[in-house]
């Protein structure tokens, strides 16, 4: 398999996880830079070009709310999970756990067959 093909599959696999990671991290209010930094520290690196449009999209879907506020003498846009977002995150977490359990079983079985 070519590295380009692997990269494309990897990005596809990560896409849904990123949404969940961002929602989970925004249970506590963040602005873009600290959110990116925290996610990177937790092993989920995401570039700005992906993160900011994603934040906009989630906000337009009503899952996040945001406000401009001054901090360190500069205006920053702070994001946090909305009430709807909390509900969706809860459902996504349950779904994630179910998928994770299934995948562990599936991948575990294929490993043992191999």
């Amino acid at each position: 398999m070519g590295s380009q093909q692997f990269e494309s599959l990897r990005l596809e696999l990560r896409r849904g996880c990123l949404v969940m990671a961002v929602l989970a991290q925004l249970r506590v209010e963040h602005y873009g830079y600290t959110l990116k930094k925290d996610l990177a520290d937790l092993g989920m690196d995401i570039d700005e070009g992906t993160l900011y449009p994603l934040l906009r999209r989630l906000e337009s879907q009503g899952l996040l709310s945001s406000e401009w506020r001054e901090e360190d003498k500069r205006n920053k846009r702070f994001y946090r999970l909305s009430i709807e977002g909390k509900k969706v995150l809860k459902e996504l977490t349950a779904e994630w756990e179910q998928i994770n359990t299934s995948m562990n079983r599936i991948v575990g079985r294929s490993r043992s067959v191999a």
Binding site: Y31, G32, Y33, E48, Y52, R56, W68, R74, K76, R77
Partner: peptide, 17 residues
């Protein structure tokens, strides 16, 4: 509709970097 808002945020992102 979002032009000014996104541009302000982009300014903030680049400035922070």
């Amino acid at each position: 509709a979002q032009r000014d808002d996104i541009a302000s945020e982009l300014h903030e992102i680049l400035q922070t970097q």
